[in-house]
Design a protein around this nucleic acid. Structure first.
Length: 801
RNA sequence: GCUGGAGUGGUGGAAUGGCAUACACGUCGGUCUCAAAAACCGAUGGGGGCAACUCCGUGAGGGUUCAACUCCCUCCUCCAGCACCA
């Protein structure tokens, strides 16, 4: 009899739904386990990436349930965002209708996969019952000065006609549509994530169960560097130009100063100088270039002399001040001291413009490795001994860095400082399908926050979107016109909406109490369920979403709404699903639709294959033959029921206990591929030697997290009452793991020559005698005397001759 | 450039100091069948040998060790993130 997956899967999905099998409720008696997968954007169809992500999570959730944990496993939809607007323009529908239709379709697809979600906790970020709390959080931030508006040079995507956060600019392009990002001066809303930079950086140390590379990526992004701000004075009028450097040890080697073209002092420096016209022309030219072009021209280091000089405070030398495009206003002070001998960029620039050089670090103390400034082909950026550096001559440069910094601080010519790469988070978008920012502009009172009791500021269901840019909300008169919450006079509503990453920065908290209507989340519920024990999602969120969520959590901690500082205890980043070595994508035309795979092989086969094909973190090459293999394996297990014996073979029994041990460990470590291999080995052994109902039942329980419908059905056929998930995870008997006789490999000079079966606790002497008498070993020892016997108990024997 | 990860049969992968290639896919052979499919059994890293067996073999080269896919050094290739960050 062949396993009928279609009927079985439908049957159990209905039972699970009818019995509310995965409903989670706090239970102080039980240990909680909050398992979360990154919620999807509701595009209407799930793809293989979702299948993989959610299968991994589902196995973990079901495994923990069998182990006796009180598991919460919720699902929802990250439902705001641009595709809904694009679809609305294209199909002439409303984003709201379109999104809700997609959500329903997606729910159906997820249910077909048999995932154990507590659907009663479902949330969609586009519902006002959710985004009301986005607005509430925004107001709390506004109250504390963490949400603020400022005019500045921002990233602008011309294709999406909206602003972008720094984190959303990937290689100079828009993260969503890849169009080249432009710079624009606009007044925009920001969140002061920089107030949390220290915590965001230092608390990374707590995240012991996060992948190292995610930690590195976040560290890199926050980008702390220690250095010194050195005060150079203008020769003409003594005005100070602060310069930031991480290489205080090279201060005596500075031969010129460079300012960014946008530096506020530049205009003054060139005024009336013969260099003025050339300098102005250069500044205008750089201003036209976008940031992307400017940072891509690595080779070409252009610049002009200002005609002014600054004084090096450590030796009173006069240094020419230049303007160059390789110095950025956004980092440090927008001014640098150039040390061409020990910085490659400065070196190239100095060569190009014939500026002077001076060596201050010699790699060694001997004469033949000595550097000579004008013979160098490139800058020496390594360590060595200081020279031409006054009182610091002869010292090692690396420890001297600190010493020189302190000395400058004492002398008042510098200050030890930290610089951070992290910028405040730009959150306003000139878009319709997002959370309205709850601010009203009053001609008298200025920007005024909406009163808490007036939340939510509802997004009107209708708005004219043409895709021509500009905030669609600005065209909805009833929305824009509002009374000032302070003075009651006629005022205008903010028409920008929030970036969707705002929505996903706290949804994990909302899941704890999705219907709660007195606050974003019920503190009691959050206290029980949070933090998330295991979070699973794609590596593409390593910076954006994970950093923002950490920021929000720290903010809630400051509001005393939570009593922990990191939201996600463990993180697993699953690899992508590839087809023919490439990411599956519409444009490549290599998409494999999960739905048709479910039709042909069933959800359980798909789940099994996707876990077996590769470890969760690595990329997975799609291979339909592998899926067929998974299907065959299920049928093989299915047929065991027809050949059960009264008593299991003792070898099979031992094998079962080895499997329990191995699989329990593997499941705990998310090594599903090797766990499945163990199941296959056990199945092969059962085929050869035979098993009874008890052995088979235990195999079924262990398989259930991976292939839940299949296992429920077998569990029932085997005569058990109720769901297999009410069973408990099998325990192994350590006594059954101990083998009386073991097979020892025998090596001669580290090469395998023989294997002998011996009693587990054989004495060394007896073992030696046996080995020396072994037929296959003897020829190798002929005429030689063993120098040494290496015996690793119960592992191996190695004879050295 | 910097940082991180990886490199193992025809393929996906296993083994993190102790029997390299578990498990699966594919291929080949067999059983069953009128035949095919399914199922079941067996073989399957490369070279040499009728064979027992033997030599070589985890990107390349060196080292440590009785013993290295695993640890150390040098290098190559691929992937990812950041990048004129001073």
């Amino acid at each position: 009899m062949l396993y009928n997956f279609k009927e079985t899967e439908e049957k159990w999905q209905k039972i699970w739904q009818d019995t509310r099998a995965f409903r989670a409720q706090p239970d102080p008696q039980k240990k909680k386990y909050y398992l979360l997968e990154m919620f999807p954007y509701p595009s209407g169809k799930i793809h293989m990436g979702h299948v993989r992500n959610y299968t991994i999570g589902d196995v973990a959730a079901r495994f923990k349930t069998l182990q006796g944990y009180n598991v919460m496993h919720p699902m929802g939809f990250d439902a705001f965002g641009q595709p809904a607007e694009n679809a609305a323009i294209k199909n002439n529908t409303k984003p709201d209708d379109w999104t809700h239709k997609c959500i329903r379709e997606m729910e159906t697809e997820l249910k077909k996969m048999g995932f154990s979600y507590d659907w009663e906790r479902e949330v969609s970020t586009c519902d006002s019952s959710y985004y009301k709390w986005n607005q509430w959080i925004f107001l709390k931030m506004f109250e504390r000065g963490l949400a603020y508006k400022k005019a500045s040079n921002v990233n602008w995507c011309p294709s999406c006609s909206t602003t972008l956060a720094n984190e959303e600019v990937i290689e100079g392009g828009c993260w969503r549509c890849h169009a080249k990002v432009e710079q624009k001066d606009l007044e925009q809303w920001y969140l002061k994530i920089t107030d949390y930079k220290e915590k965001l950086l230092y608390n990374l140390e707590q995240l012991k169960y996060w992948p190292e590379r995610v930690i590195f990526m976040q560290q890199n992004w926050i980008g702390k560097s220690k250095g010194v701000e050195i005060y150079f004075k203008l020769k003409d009028n003594g005005r100070v130009i602060p310069v930031f450097t991480t290489r205080a040890d090279t201060i005596f080697g500075a031969t010129y100063i460079v300012l960014a073209p946008e530096h506020p002092l530049v205009k003054e420096l060139i005024k009336g100088k013969p260099q003025e016209p050339a300098a102005l022309e250069f500044i205008a030219k750089v201003a036209q270039e976008s940031k992307t072009i400017r940072s891509s021209s690595e080779v070409n280091k252009e610049g002009v002399f200002t005609g002014s000089f600054a004084v090096n405070p450590v030796n009173n030398e006069e240094l020419p001040i230049w303007i160059a495009d390789y110095v950025l206003m956004e980092y440090g002070t927008g001014a640098i001291m150039a040390v061409p001998t020990h910085d490659q960029r400065d070196f190239l620039f100095a060569k190009e413009h014939n500026l002077s050089l001076r060596v201050v670090i010699q790699p060694g103390l001997d004469d033949n490795s000595r550097l000579s400034a004008y013979e160098m082909a490139e800058a020496y950026e390594g360590d060595g001994y200081l020279e031409n550096s006054g009182q610091f001559n002869g010292k090692k440069n690396s420890p001297a860095k600190e010493e020189i910094a302190l000395w400058m601080e004492v002398k008042g010519i510098g200050k030890i400082q930290e610089h951070w790469r992290l910028r405040d988070w730009l959150i306003s978008r000139q878009r319709y399908w997002g959370t309205p920012i709850p601010i009203i502009y009053c001609p008298e009172c200025g920007p005024v926050p909406v009163n808490e009791k007036d939340l939510p500021v509802e997004l009107p269901k209708d708005a004219p979107f043409t895709g021509e840019g500009g905030s669609p909300l600005a065209k909805v008169k009833e929305f824009v016109e509002a009374a000032c919450p302070k003075c009651g006079k006629n005022a205008r509503r903010e028409t920008d909406t929030m970036a969707t990453f705002f929505d996903s920065s706290w949804y994990f908290l909302r899941f704890c109490s999705p219907q709660f209507n007195a606050a974003p989340f019920d503190l009691k519920e959050a206290k029980y369920w949070m933090p998330v024990d295991q979070y699973i999602g794609g590596i593409e969120h390593a910076i954006l979403h994970l950093l923002y969520s950490r920021f929000f959590t720290k903010f809630f901690q400051d509001l005393e709404m939570v009593d922990f500082n990191e939201p996600f205890e463990r993180l697993l980043t699953q690899g992508m699903v590839l087809k023919d070595g490439e990411v599956m994508s519409k444009s490549r035309g290599n998409i494999v639709d999960p739905d048709s795979m479910i039709k042909n092989y069933g959800a359980d086969s798909l789940r099994l294959f996707i876990l077996f094909a590769a470890p969760p973190e690595t990329e997975l090459e799609w291979d339909e033959r592998g899926l067929e293999g998974a299907f065959k394996f299920l049928n093989r297990v299915w047929r065991i029921q027809d050949n059960l014996k009264d008593k299991a073979d003792p070898q099979v029994l031992k094998h079962l206990h080895r499997t329990i041990k191995k699989v329990s460990q593997d499941f705990g470590e998310f090594k599903f591929n090797t766990a499945i291999a163990s199941f296959m080995e056990l199945t092969n052994a059962i085929y050869q030697l035979g098993a009874d109902k008890e052995v088979f039942s235990k195999l079924v329980v262990m398989l259930s997290p991976i292939v839940p419908h299949f296992s429920e059905e077998l569990w029932q056929i085997l005569g058990n009452q109720g769901s297999v998930f009410k069973a408990s995870w099998p325990q192994y008997d350590p006594q059954l793991l101990v083998e009386e006789t073991i097979e020892l490999p025998i090596q001669v000079n580290g090469k395998l020559r023989s294997k002998i079966a011996v009693a587990r606790d054989i004495s060394e002497e007896k073992l030696k005698a046996l080995v020396l008498a072994d037929q296959k070993v003897v020829p190798w020892l002929e005429g030689k005397t063993p120098k040494k016997f290496i015996i690793v108990p119960q592992k191996l024997v190695n004879i050295v001759i």
